[in-house]
């Protein structure tokens, strides 16, 4: 596909132009931090953000999503995609979406997610500032971001837009863009390569080695008790994670008491009752009773279980969990590096 250049002063005009025909979701400021939200004007766009509170997964898999509607006669579904341009996604979050794309397609396709995914054009953007807890420079470096339609890189004087798909190509109307020169494209490449060394945290191991060692550590109760010490099972580390996709399903009634809906809500495997079941005998059985077994499960999934399916770790290195954890224990850098450093 093509490579284009747009001057810095033209960018907002381009975004406002797109806004006339489609919904645009991008990073905007929220108090001292950033969130993905629908743009009310291009001026809100903050391509200089470091990381958003929640990953862009929420566009396709919202924290609360109605999946069925019912009345006394019938049950119908609620898949209703809205054409959207998702603008300004950092590469590590594109990698996160690649993983949820795969997982939502695997075996049983979940069109409650996929329909909105297909109705969305994703424009990735270069990382202009690095979040303090990020470690995307070293984790899963062999996995390249796939599921984006165009990549916008800030260079001096403006931006280079490299289109990856016909959907992306359609965004580059030529009134504001011109074809980029080879130098500009090479410059964009240098910008994106240079930022990879900017994370202050490192996880200097091959993800396959990590997968093997983490899996082997399963039975080391002492190690996991130590690592999980102070965890109060709040589930924040799950909720902010781009590659977590567990959910709960609950029904509710409308005021008429005959119609209602079935809704799915994000759920968190770190919370106490996540794997609890009332057995046929009536007794409660919690398959992950202890907080350390839940903490361990999260790392088993991220580093080992999903690794085989995905061909890399189910962690993008965004650092959101590290920042969200009040006990300051959820950071994969601390946990993985500790495991890699001990003799099991």
């Amino acid at each position: 596909m093509g490579a284009y250049f747009i001057g810095a002063h033209e960018l907002l005009g381009w975004v406002d132009g797109l806004r006339e025909s489609t919904r645009i979701i991008g990073p905007v400021a929220k108090r001292q931090r950033f969130v993905f939200a629908e743009l009310e004007s291009a001026a809100q766009l903050r391509l200089d953000y470091d990381v958003t509170i929640l990953p862009p997964k929420k566009v396709f898999f919202p924290p609360k999503q109605q999946i069925l509607a019912f009345d006394s006669e019938r049950v119908s579904d609620c898949i209703d995609p809205v054409p959207t341009v998702l603008l300004g996604v950092h590469f590590y979050d594109v990698k996160g979406l690649d993983m949820t794309d795969f997982l939502m397609r695997e075996r049983y396709e979940d069109w409650n997610y996929l329909a909105q995914r297909e109705a969305t054009t994703i424009v990735a953007s270069s990382v202009q500032s690095v979040a303090p807890r990020a470690f995307w420079g070293s984790i899963g470096a062999h996995v390249r971001p796939q599921g984006h339609d165009a990549m916008l890189t800030k260079v001096s004087e403006g931006y280079v837009l490299e289109t990856r798909t016909p959907k992306g190509e359609r965004l580059a109307g030529l009134e504001r863009f011109r074809h980029a020169t080879d130098d500009e494209v090479a410059g964009a490449e240098r910008v994106n390569a240079a930022v990879m060394d900017q994370c202050s945290q490192l996880m200097p191991y091959d993800s396959k080695e990590i997968a093997t060692k983490v899996r082997e550590s399963f039975g080391n109760e002492e190690l996991w008790d130590d690592l999980a010490m102070d965890c109060f099972s709040c589930g924040s580390c799950n909720i902010v994670c781009p590659t977590c996709y567990c959910f709960d399903v609950r029904d509710s009634w409308n005021v008429d008491q005959t119609s209602g809906q079935r809704t799915r809500y994000w759920d968190a495997c770190l919370t106490r009752e996540f794997a609890a079941v009332t057995m046929a005998g009536g007794q409660k059985e919690n398959f992950r009773e202890h907080h350390a077994s839940r903490f361990r499960h999260r790392f088993m999934r991220k580093a080992a279980y999903l690794h085989d399916k995905l061909g890399g770790p189910a962690c993008t290195g965004c650092g959101r969990c590290a920042a969200a954890c009040t006990a300051n224990i959820a950071d994969p850098v601390r946990v993985i590096n500790t495991i890699m450093g001990v003799t099991l």
């Binding site: 709960d248 495997c269 080992a304």
Partner: peptide, 19 residues
């Protein structure tokens, strides 16, 4: 085996036994 199940289609994560 018996586990807590929500989705029944390998998505929601509730029924996981290791991987």
């Amino acid at each position: 085996l018996e586990r807590r199940m929500k989705c029944g289609v390998g998505k929601c994560g509730h029924c996981q036994i290791n991987d």
